[in-house]
Design a protein around this nucleic acid. Structure first.
Length: 579
RNA sequence: CGGGGCGUGGCGCAGUCUGGCUAGCGCGUCUGGUUUGGGACCAGAAGGUCGCAGGUUCGAAUCCUGUCGCCCCGACCA
């Protein structure tokens, strides 16, 4: 492609509003243009990178035995009603009514496709002989994001590869899951991403039923805990803080005392007023578990984790208690709950046992207790791991302190079980003529996020650093004086030969000064740059420079196309070699 | 949805507090010329309902009210 004949609107300055590196660079390098909040046009360069990521995903899905389909983005609302996800998605589900033959038809744009694919399987699969099968598609998803942000990282319309496995047995599901997990590793390896597969919240199935693929990045929206020593990694919500018993520390001798804390219900406000640290306080949270109120105690500086609480209690449904339930259970308005004298079951996080004394709510408006001591002043019915991990917690595998890192989620694999197959009647007959719900797994990759995460993590002060596998073009030709007949002839010849050799080449044929071409080539980040200038040509040489290296090398003009094609080919293979 | 910030030629900004001549600057674009190995120089030119609407005023980019949009923090996120 000739630069002058495509659209690459590079920018010298950072557009107002772009803050994180990937957003800044995608705009400056002319990869994307914004239409409105959360909606971007992919310009020629950005689209080429996106298509390459898509092709890698497709190749690896096919190699893993998955079969491609393409489902409509437009779906009937009834499908989502059957699985209860109209409520679950709420405002995120973009839905509307259109008039057809004088009747209103209610439909939704698919935010994901479990329902649609399960309906498909329900219609066409009825025997164990048709299983297992994994179907996938690469398609635009729609979600009404409350707050789109970070450039293309969080948009209301995005390209997603979603795959769904269908098995007759749990063992089969595990095998399907394993295949997808491995395919994901190959995909992200080939994309040149530095990623982590972390244990994630797995819902009702439990165990190792869910992994998220994360790229560590300071601007990532997710948090993961990571052990630098043994490599343990987990989603912040999922991370095991450990089954441990903490011995009661010695009594510091403080007596229980009731103090006034007028209007102050928050940990922050009370700690300021009383001059104590949040970790010297107790948070008392009232939940409703399967209709029954329970109290959950965590240290003031910790965050309760609803998933962990639900599992510990063995509850099906868990929610924060509404104000009237809290008042009924504690006798005090929100913000003044405490464990002393509380009549409902009390669960506490392990770390509560390690507090010599604590500031707690007094179950009385505008009052707290200081000096509250476990066993002496209040009782706990059960101890469990009930909180989110924090930096410095011991690694559950090796005990070293964990670190918390921000990350971008680029993929998620999940064992679904029979939630959707039961709701949508996707059943099969086994060899003994018994009917069972098909056992499902689902596997998603955010294609746009592959591009954004790569740019976010692989850039320097001059621009993007593409791996060969995703680069919009593999080689950029930079003739320095396009009007010089000799330069022009050598450039055109090389361009034609490289095209002939199936090298993806961008010819910077603009009548610009060298500095402009170099700056743009660096910004756009094409991996290999070939400079054709009078200086080298006199000696029959071309300059070849990798974007990732600071120094160029010279190669003979004679046979240059073959040499360059070889260099490109070698680099193309690197991604595969990693797997 | 709560908190904060910003809307001025294609891009980046100044001017707004303290209203006042024809709304400026840099980049980019166009024309002519000189240049040609890391975002050139000279000369000239085009391009703006100052987000939108209403109000105050002799006079509004500037003050007031409303509204729309974008960005950031938080809440939410299958």
């Amino acid at each position: 492609m000739r630069w002058s004949q495509t659209l690459i609107p590079t920018m010298k300055e950072t557009p107002e509003g772009a803050e994180i590196p990937s957003h800044v660079l995608m705009l400056r390098a002319g990869l994307v243009g914004q239409l409105m909040a959360g909606a971007y046009t992919y310009l020629p360069l950005g689209l080429r990178a996106l298509r390459k990521a898509e092709a890698i995903v497709r190749e690896e899905m096919d190699a893993a035995g998955a079969v491609e389909v393409h489902m409509p983005a437009l779906t009937p609302i009834s499908l989502w009603e059957r699985t209860g996800r109209v409520e679950a998605f709420g405002n995120v589900l973009i839905n509307f009514k259109v008039r057809r033959q004088n009747k209103l038809v209610h439909m939704a744009l698919g935010p994901t496709h479990e329902e649609v694919i399960t309906d498909l399987v329900a219609r066409h699969i009825s025997s164990y002989r048709q299983l297992p099968i994994t179907l996938y598609q690469i398609q635009t998803k729609f979600r009404n994001e409350e707050r789109p942000r970070f450039g293309v990282l969080r948009t209301s319309e995005f390209l997603m590869k979603d795959a769904y496995s269908f098995d007759a047995s749990v063992e089969g599901l595990n095998a399907s899951y394993e295949k997808m997990y491995k395919a994901y590793c190959r995909i992200f390896d080939r994309c040149g991403l530095d990623y982590l597969a972390v244990e994630a919240e797995s819902g009702p199935i439990g165990g190792d039923a869910s992994h998220e693929f994360m790229v560590l990045a300071d601007n990532g929206e997710d948090s993961v805990v990571h052990c630098a020593k043994c490599g343990y990694a987990a989603n912040m919500e999922r991370a095991d803080v450990g089954q441990r018993t903490i011995a009661a520390p010695p009594d510091v001798g403080a007596a229980l005392a009731k103090v006034d804390t007028p209007q102050l219900g928050s940990i922050d406000a009370v700690s300021k007023l009383l001059g104590c640290r949040p970790d010297e306080m107790l948070k008392t949270l009232i939940y409703v578990a399967d209709g029954q109120p329970v109290a959950v105690l965590v240290r003031g500086d910790h965050e309760a984790n609803e998933g962990k609480v639900r599992r510990a209690l063995g509850a099906g449904k868990l929610e924060m208690a509404p104000p009237e339930v809290v008042e009924n259970a504690t006798g005090a308005p929100l913000g003044f709950a405490g464990p002393i004298g509380l009549k409902i079951p009390i669960w506490a996080d392990h770390d509560v046992a390690g507090m010599p004394q604590a500031v707690v709510g007094a179950n009385e408006a505008d009052k707290h207790y200081t000096g509250a001591r476990l066993a002496r002043d209040f009782q706990v019915n059960h101890f469990a791991d009930l909180r989110n991990a924090t930096a410095g917690d011991p690694c559950p595998r090796c005990g070293q302190p964990l670190e918390v890192r921000h990350a971008i989620e680029i993929g998620h694999v999940f064992k679904l079980g029979t939630k959707y197959s039961e709701a949508l009647d996707a059943r099969f007959s086994d060899a003994k003529e018994q009917q069972h719900a098909v056992i499902m797994g689902c596997y998603g990759i955010g294609i746009n996020r592959i591009i954004a995460a790569l740019i976010e993590t692989q850039n320097d002060e001059n621009g993007i650093l593409w791996p060969m596998s995703l680069a919009p073009y593999e080689v950029v030709l930079s003739p320095l004086n396009a009007k010089d007949a000799e330069v022009l002839a050598a450039t055109e010849k090389l361009y034609a030969e490289l095209l002939e050799a199936d090298v993806e080449v961008l010819l910077d044929d603009r009548d610009q000064r060298p500095g402009v071409k170099f700056k743009d080539a660096d910004l756009v980040g094409i991996p290999l740059r070939i400079v054709i200038g009078g200086r080298g040509l006199k000696e029959g040489q071309l300059e070849v420079k990798w974007r990732s290296k600071s120094e160029p090398t010279m190669i003979p003009l004679e046979g240059a196309a073959v040499a360059i094609a070889d260099m490109v080919q070698e680099e193309r293979n690197l991604g595969h070699a990693h797997t």
